[in-house]
């Protein structure tokens, strides 16, 4: 059962973190993208058995995220070798972070961890200052698509233009 009410809400300061992104030990996290919006896509597992899974979709949608100068980070409890094989097979070029040890710690801090020992399917958009601008929890078996993310990024862009005036 997913902890439905635990996901970090809009307006909260996003906990900073770094997690391993490559087998070589390179680590990254939202703080490395300071000044840019960051999209965190928590998902239960690599290798979901459908041909258009959420991470593949986000790869295809990457140019749209980039129009808002946003960085996209996938997060699951899979290890870095699983992430690497998954990324190669699906043609994924954005970082997939391994919330592997201590298992699920970052996901827990965002309220995006389930009782089954995996990350929830949760989306969190951070503004360039590191505050949560929007978050959404989906049932594990529902691919939430990218429209919510793009709407959130668009609102951020509009807010920034208003601020700049």
């Amino acid at each position: 059962m997913t902890e439905l009410h635990g996901l970090i809400p809009a307006g909260s300061a996003a906990p900073d973190f770094t997690l391993p992104a490559t087998p070589e030990g390179h680590r990254t996290g939202p703080g490395r993208y300071a000044g840019r919006p960051v999209v965190l896509a928590f998902y239960p597992a690599d290798w979901s058995p459908v041909c258009s899974d959420q991470m593949s979709l986000y790869q295809a949608a990457l140019p749209e995220f980039e129009r808002y100068d946003a960085a996209l980070l996938g997060v699951s409890v899979d290890g870095i070798w699983s992430h690497r094989a998954f990324a190669q097979q699906r043609g994924i070029t954005f970082p997939l972070l391994a919330d592997f040890e201590p298992k699920g710690e970052v996901s827990r801090r965002y309220g995006a961890y389930t009782g089954q020992g995996v990350s929830a399917r949760a989306l969190v958009v951070l503004d360039p200052a590191g505050t949560v601008a929007w978050s959404q929890l989906s049932p594990d078996d529902v691919n939430p698509g990218a429209d919510g993310i793009l709407d959130a990024l668009e609102r951020l862009g509009a807010d920034r233009r208003v601020t700049a005036r």
Binding site: V50, Q54, L57, G145, A146, D147, L150
Partner: peptide
Amino acid sequence: VRQDFVSGIRSGVNGT
């Protein structure tokens, strides 16, 4: 083709 794709993404298309 990209315009179609983007219209889909913005409409909640999450796969095919």
